[in-house]
């Protein structure tokens, strides 16, 4: 097994900054609430935090789909439809993957 010291240090540096981003948000929130003298988030802070997941997911999905083509838009429609009707994550994922693979293979657009 070969390992280069500079490579090792680079990987370690990348790992440390990544872990810092993973714990940073939680750590900041606990600092803020401790300074406010509470053990938990204030209602206003909690309202903000509760809107983060939806906003982040929208931000992941919309540019990813619109930067592609009609295949991806159709596949998104299929995914949303299956997720809405079947309420099953695996089925919804499969619907999107199958539609996009089929449309690409058929080359209809």
């Amino acid at each position: 097994m070969r390992i280069d010291p500079v490579t090792l240090l680079t990987i370690l540096g990348m790992a440390l900054v990544t872990y810092a981003t993973r714990v940073g948000g939680f750590w900041m929130m606990s600092r803020i609430t401790r300074q406010a003298g509470e053990g938990r988030a204030s209602p206003r802070l909690e309202a903000w935090l509760s809107h983060i997941p939806g906003a982040v997911l929208i931000s992941l999905v919309v540019p990813a789909v619109l930067s592609q083509g009609p295949e991806e838009i159709m596949a998104l429609a299929a995914t949303v439809l299956v997720a809405w009707r079947a309420k099953n994550l695996l089925l919804a994922m499969l619907a999107g993957v199958i539609v996009v693979a089929a449309l690409r293979a058929l080359n209809v657009f």
Binding site: T21, G25, F26, M29
Partner: peptide
């Protein structure tokens, strides 16, 4: 990876 900061904050409650 800065987006993790926002994600970690959302985990706080």
């Amino acid at each position: 990876n800065l987006r993790h900061v926002l994600m970690g904050a959302a985990v706080y409650p």
